[in-house]
């Protein structure tokens, strides 16, 4: 009688048994992989986009640190100019205010235009006080040229323009020449137009603000 332990058929049976164990192990691994995939799928929202869910983009119109830094610089230059003015050093005060025009504001910040226009108005006044009427007029005209909307600061700049024109007319009159007298009258008309423009802007803005409230 043949020994069963050495029979090729018995070895084949043993191999079948081992193959069955390996198959079950492979299936268990496959099931585990499927469950892991399910787990990843359930914890999905963050991983799907590849970033943390709490990351929120900054709105472009939100008050940010760049705007606050620019406003802070403008504020400091105005205070610095006031100190110079209180000391009678108008050129240094003028230089301080002029530096506000170079402050780098966020491009889309409406406050930037307001603050710069206000600085131009103050700069024009300082220049007029120092007899630099033409330079003052250039500062005002440049500001009005770049203004993108009507505002109280634009209206104030028109007011300053009227004051500059008024000063210009007085200078013309002070020369005592007849031609300059005619020119002075023309400049006064322009000053009145500038004041009227300022008044019109202020009225329109006040009406709009009241309606919004």
């Amino acid at each position: 009688m043949r020994s069963p332990m050495t029979s090729p058929s018995l070895r084949a049976g043993a191999r079948r048994a081992a193959s069955g164990r390996a198959g079950r192990l492979a299936l268990a691994v496959l099931a585990g992989v499927a469950l892991v995939a399910l787990g990843f799928a359930c914890s999905s929202d963050s991983d799907r986009r590849g970033g943390p869910v709490t990351r929120i983009t900054e709105p472009e119109d939100a008050i940010d640190e760049a705007l606050m830094v620019a406003l802070s610089q403008a504020k400091n230059f105005h205070h610095k100019a006031r100190v110079y003015m209180s000391d009678g050093q108008l050129p240094l005060a003028t230089a301080a205010v002029r530096q506000i025009l170079a402050v780098r504001f966020p491009p889309a910040a409406p406050e930037a235009e307001d603050v710069v226009l206000d600085a131009r108005a103050m700069l024009a006044k300082l220049l007029v006080a120092q007899g630099q009427v033409e330079a003052a007029m250039s500062v005002v005209d440049e500001g009005l040229a770049v203004a993108s909307r009507d505002s109280f600061f634009v209206a104030n700049l028109y007011t300053v323009k009227g004051e500059v024109l008024q000063a210009q007319a007085e200078l013309l009159v002070s020369t005592g020449q007849p031609a300059d007298g005619d020119r002075a009258r023309e400049v006064r008309k322009q000053a009145i137009i500038a004041f009227d423009k300022s008044i019109a802007i202020n009225e329109a803005l006040q009406k709009r603000i009241l309606e919004e409230k």
């Binding site: 119109d61 939100a62 966020p106 409406p110 603050v115 600061f153 803005l205 603000i209 919004e212």
Partner: peptide, 10 residues
């Protein structure tokens, strides 16, 4: 909380 014109404030 937005950056906005200062007209209403001033």
């Amino acid at each position: 909380l937005r950056s906005r014109p200062a007209d209403a404030l001033i």
